[in-house]
Design a binder for these strands. Structure first.
Lengths: 195, 195
DNA sequence: TTATCCATGTAAGAAGTTACATGATTGA
DNA sequence: TCAATCATGTAACTTCTTACATGGATAA
């Protein structure tokens, strides 16, 4: 699955311009898939070449001209075929969690700030999703609700367990343990060699 | 943050070869960040050129030779500097959720199977994480626990709400609604134009 | 005997992001 | 007056994945 499929999907809910596709991805998709203009516009052009979408040029006064795309029968087929291939596993890339994993290398206050920010940001997204999960098709509510459940669980977990990465005393101890075990710059290696 | 930083991070917990770094990422990181050999080996070579890691060659009998990397003082500094820059938002790419969003284009039975598989797979990962969240540093338990919380919430949500994307009657209705609104192949556009 | 583990590396390519170019309109 | 919205597109670049090359040891 790639940006082309994503465009086909958005278009299956109604015709749209590239710009509008991006907007619709932002509010409704953005927590589990995203794409930039730099990938959407080329994708739409390729899709048109392949006959999977049609394009209607619309001149507008007071606004830049628009190219409104719509699915063709072939396009809908291609979308269904794509959707019928088993989805690959979720790919998640969380710099936040990497940072938390090495929290003992950072000032506890900074770690606390990061968690505060994260809770606040998740709260905002959660509120936005809660609005959305009331209307739309059942499938749209399902997906919005999924996001809600995830963000709510994340907030709760962070609140209940932040002490694990914020406790200064603990962190200092871990720091000392590390000195003893792993981080000597060189030369002291034993074990593991010459098996 | 990139694979180089990830390598520095793993090495901050103890020296390792490229192969071992990959293994350690797989069990402990893989649910929120991953990297392939094709990115790890070049990363380690660059890191060595930059003086952020040292490399000890270890000849092994009965096994291929090994290159064991260890952080230098500069490397640890670089890691801390990286970790101190605010993490970018999580990037999540879920083909599963995209598929769910367009579930009405697919046979309900197939959608049900996908959900069953997802619940089973999440259950496996959850069990693996539960083992891990008992030991390790507090930070490691924090991150493993975060994963646990997410997978548990996902499983519960799927069980409680799968009817939203599996109900045949509803889906058929949505399908008909779509015919009427969006998917006419071309020409019928009104609204939205010439604003 | 077949597959998997160990172990490193390169090269080609996919897929996407960022930054830029262009420019009127509108709201703060 | 400054920023944001609308609107499309290209080019350079980054980053990572996949596939390949190599090959002994071991477990099923």
């Amino acid at each position: 699955m790639d940006v082309k499929t994503l465009c086909l999907g958005v278009l299956s809910m109604g015709e749209a311009s590239g710009y509008e596709i991006k907007k619709r991805l932002e509010d409704g998709f953005s927590h589990f898939y995203d794409a930039s203009f730099g990938s959407i516009y080329p994708a739409l052009n390729r899709l048109q070449q392949e006959g999977l979408v049609t394009c209607a040029f619309e001149a507008q006064s007071k606004r830049p001209d628009k190219k409104v795309y719509a699915l063709t029968a072939d396009g809908k087929l291609a979308l269904v075929r794509e959707l019928a291939t088993p989805p690959v596993e979720d790919r998640i890339r969380s710099e936040f969690l990497v940072t938390m994993l090495f929290a003992d290398l950072l000032p506890a206050g900074y770690v606390g700030e990061l968690i505060d920010q994260r809770i606040a940001e998740h709260g905002r997204v959660l509120a936005a999703l809660t609005d959305k999960s009331c209307d739309g098709t059942p499938a749209q509510r399902f997906v919005a609700g999924y996001g809600e459940a995830m963000y709510a669980a994340a907030i709760k977990y962070l609140q209940d367990n932040r002490h694990l990465v914020e406790s200064e005393a603990l962190l200092a101890q871990v720091g000392r343990d590390r000195e003893e075990n792993g981080l000597t710059p060189r030369g002291t290696r034993t074990r593991e060699a010459s098996g």
